[in-house]
Design a protein around this nucleic acid. Structure first.
Length: 258
DNA sequence: AATCCAAGCAACCGCCTATTC
DNA sequence: TGAATAGGCGGTTGCTTGGAT
């Protein structure tokens, strides 16, 4: 009876606004003990005055291990552009191909950089996006670079969804540890990439330009290309970083080609 | 130094779907 | 089978910060 009354009272007193360190600690401890899920029980078990949705969001977007902080790398941006052309505003789907980035991160980035126009700083990206979208529409068999493999991957996942929902343990593992497939699809996420590669994206002429207006000329070293190439397995989607750099791949996508 | 403004980000809201009873 | 509940997702809001004037 008391527990019930407490529960009812709690529902009317959900805390909102920024999370404190203490709240983060309580939530993290809860997840460590009970795993992800059962978010509505967090308040009961920990005394947190946060509702289940708020707890889940805080964990997924901020506390979850393995999250990446800081600016998106140019390759991540490229992946987002490509996947957005395929999936539209399916941020959570796109996020699955960018380990360490959340749907919220991607959504915020997209909104900041692509949904606002008129700023010269972003015009090249706008043009690049428009070009990608236009060309993808024109091609019935949009490549070689594998839109198809990504799509079939999603279909396969849908088919196995019922199995996964019956297997919560597996679901948790999938959630915490992106599949190997995903990791191969997004080689840019490998350690060291973001720190060694300048913040550039491919321009209309095939050359790289800086996203953040750095004065330094972007560099596309052979080491980088090799590192990139070696991390890609056959028959997986890959994302081009330059025409000269990756011609040895059977399935490759060049911005220039579309 | 003060003010304004845009970018970035965290968090909330509402809707939809899946699950449970 | 239908209602209730929980979880997931996309859209939106509001706060903070840093740069420009």
């Amino acid at each position: 009876m008391e527990a019930m009354m407490g529960s009812l009272a709690t529902e009317k007193e959900w805390r909102k606004g920024p999370w404190t360190g203490e709240e983060d600690k309580l939530l993290s401890e809860y997840v460590c003990l009970h795993g992800e899920g059962r978010w509505s029980s967090v308040a009961q078990c920990t005394g947190l005055k946060r509702n289940g949705k708020s707890c889940r969001l805080r964990w997924v977007n901020y506390l979850r291990p393995g999250l990446k902080r800081g600016q998106l790398t140019p390759i991540e941006v490229g992946i987002i552009i490509e996947l957005h052309a395929i999936f539209g505003n399916k941020w959570s789907t796109i996020a699955k191909y960018l380990p360490g980035r959340t749907d919220n991160d991607i959504k915020n980035y997209w909104r900041t950089h692509f949904e606002k126009s008129g700023k010269s700083k972003h015009k090249k990206l706008e043009m690049q996006k428009a070009k990608v979208l236009k060309q993808l529409k024109q091609k019935q068999q949009p490549q070689e670079y594998d839109v198809k493999s990504i799509k079939s991957h999603e279909e396969t996942k849908n088919e196995t969804k019922s199995y996964e929902t019956e297997n919560n343990k597996q679901k948790e593992v999938d959630f915490m540890c992106p599949t190997m497939e995903h990791q191969y699809i997004v080689p840019s996420m490998h350690e060291g990439f973001s720190s060694t590669w300048p913040d550039t994206v491919l321009g209309d002429d095939g050359s790289w330009f800086s996203l953040w207006d750095f004065d330094d000329e972007p560099q596309c070293s052979a080491d980088y290309v090799n590192q990139f190439s070696e991390s890609v397995v056959p028959n997986q989607a890959t994302f081009g970083v330059g025409e000269d750099s990756m011609q040895n791949h059977d399935k490759i996508f060049y911005f220039d080609d579309i």
